[in-house]
Design a protein around this nucleic acid. Sequence first.
DNA 1: TATCTACATTTTACATGTAGAATTGCAAGC
DNA 2: GCTTGCAATTCTACATGTAAAATGTAGATA
Lengths: 239, 239
Amino acid sequence: MTNRAKTTDDPLPTIGPARVVDETVAALRQAILSGDLRPGQKLSVPALALRMGISRSPVREAVLALTAEGLAVESRRRGVVVTELGLKETDAIHEARGPLEGFATRLAAERGPADLGERLDAILAEQAEAVAAGDEDKYFRTNAAFHSAIAAACDNAEIYRLLVSLEGRMALALRQVAARPGHRESGIEEHRKVVAAIKARDGSGAEAAMRAHLAATRQRVVSTLHPDDRMTVGSGAAE
Amino acid sequence: MTNRAKTTDDPLPTIGPARVVDETVAALRQAILSGDLRPGQKLSVPALALRMGISRSPVREAVLALTAEGLAVESRRRGVVVTELGLKETDAIHEARGPLEGFATRLAAERGPADLGERLDAILAEQAEAVAAGDEDKYFRTNAAFHSAIAAACDNAEIYRLLVSLEGRMALALRQVAARPGHRESGIEEHRKVVAAIKARDGSGAEAAMRAHLAATRQRVVSTLHPDDRMTVGSGAAE
DNA sequence: TATCTACATTTTACATGTAGAATTGCAAGC
DNA sequence: GCTTGCAATTCTACATGTAAAATGTAGATA
C-alpha cells in the first residue's frame, strides 16, 4: 500500500551494460581460469591496455575487481599478480566450502525450484559427455555450472555471493589436479548422489552427500599436490 | 629453482602504504558504518573528491572497493549508493552466518591459540562496560571485535575473509536494531556461553552456542524490523 | 670475478580532460 | 491539477598526462 513512492520502478529489462570494464574483467577472468595467465604472472596495466587496444583506466579497474574477487593479489606498490594457491590455501578453501556449500545444498533440497533436479541432471549429462570425450574445458565448465546451480537454488543471495567467490578461487587451483585418471569419474558419481538426495527433497541427505563430495575432492587434491603424504583430513569430528 | 639468492628477506617492517585510496576507503567505510552516510545515499565521485580535497581517481577506486565489499551497490550507469538492507537481506546474512561462523567457532575451540579464551574475556569485559555505560559505539566495536577474534582464531584465511565480508554487511543492518532494551544484555550472555565452550575446548558445544547466539540475534532483528513492516529503510526526509 | 653505482626504462598512483548519458529545473501545454 | 518538453547541469566512463618509485642493465670499481 505504500506504493505511491515515485522512486524508479523497474519494469524494463535494464538494457545491457556494454561497459569496457565489464568485458575486460570477463576477459581477464577467462584468461586466468583457462590458464592463459599463469599464477604468479604480473598483470601490468599498461601492457594489458596496449594489448587490448583500450586505455589504462578500465584495465586498472578490472585488475582491482579481480583482486577483490581473490583471483589476483597486490603487493604494496609493486603491482598485481595472478593469485598463487598452494596446498595450504586450497585446503583452506575446501574447509570453508564444507559447511557453507553443504548448508546451501540442504536449502536447495528443501526449498529449491521444482525443476532443479532435472536441470542438474542435464548438467551431469553434459559433464559425462565431457569426460567421455576428454574435453577438459567442458568438464570444468559443467563442474562450475553444477555447483553454481546449487548455490543459486538455495535462494540466499549472501550464500550465493560467498560460494561464487570460493568456487572462483577453487577453479584456479583445480586445473592442475583433475587430470588424474579416475578423478573425474569419481566426481560425477558423487554429483549423482547429491542430485538423488535433492530430488527426494532430503535436506540432510543432500548436505551429507555434498560434504562427502567436497571431502573426497579435498582428498584427491591433497594426494595430487602432495603425493607422499597420506594425511587423513579432518573427517574426525565433522558431522 | 626457488632458491632465494642473496636478496633481502624481511628484516624491516615493510613501511606503510600511505596511499590516498586506502585512507579514502577507510574514511568512507567508517562514514557508512557510523551512519554518516545513510543507506540509499548516493556516492557521487566528483562531490566526494571535492569534499575530501583529492582528485577523482582514488575516490572512484575507493567507491568500487566498497562496492566489492558489499557496503555499496551500483546500478547500471546511475552511480553507486550505500547498500540498503531490508529484512530479507538481513535474514539472508544471518542464515549464511549460521553454518559458517558456527564452523569457525568449532575450529577456534579445537585449534585456536591458547590465550583465545582470555582475549575473548577481555573483549566481553569491555562490552559489559559499554552496556553499563550506554556507550553505543563501544558496544558495536566490541561486538565486531568478538566475532572478528573468533573468525581469526579458526586459522583459515578463507573463512576469515568470508566472515569479515558478512559481518561488515551485518554491521550496516544492526545499528537500527540493537537499541531495544534487553538486546545487548542478552547478547553478552550468549557470548559468555560461547567463550565457556571455547575455554573447555569443546568444539561441538562452541559451535552450538554460536549458532544459538546467531539464531537469537536473528530473532531479535526480525521482531524489531517486522512489526512496523518497513521492508526498506530510510524512507524519511533524509535530505 | 664479484659488487656497487649510475642511468634508462617501466610502472604505479594520482590528477585532469572530455563525450555522451542521465538528472534536474522550469516553464508551457492539456 | 498533472503531464510534457527542453535547456542547463551533473555525472559516469573512458582517455590521457605526469611525478615518484621500482626495476633492469650497463659500466665502474675493487
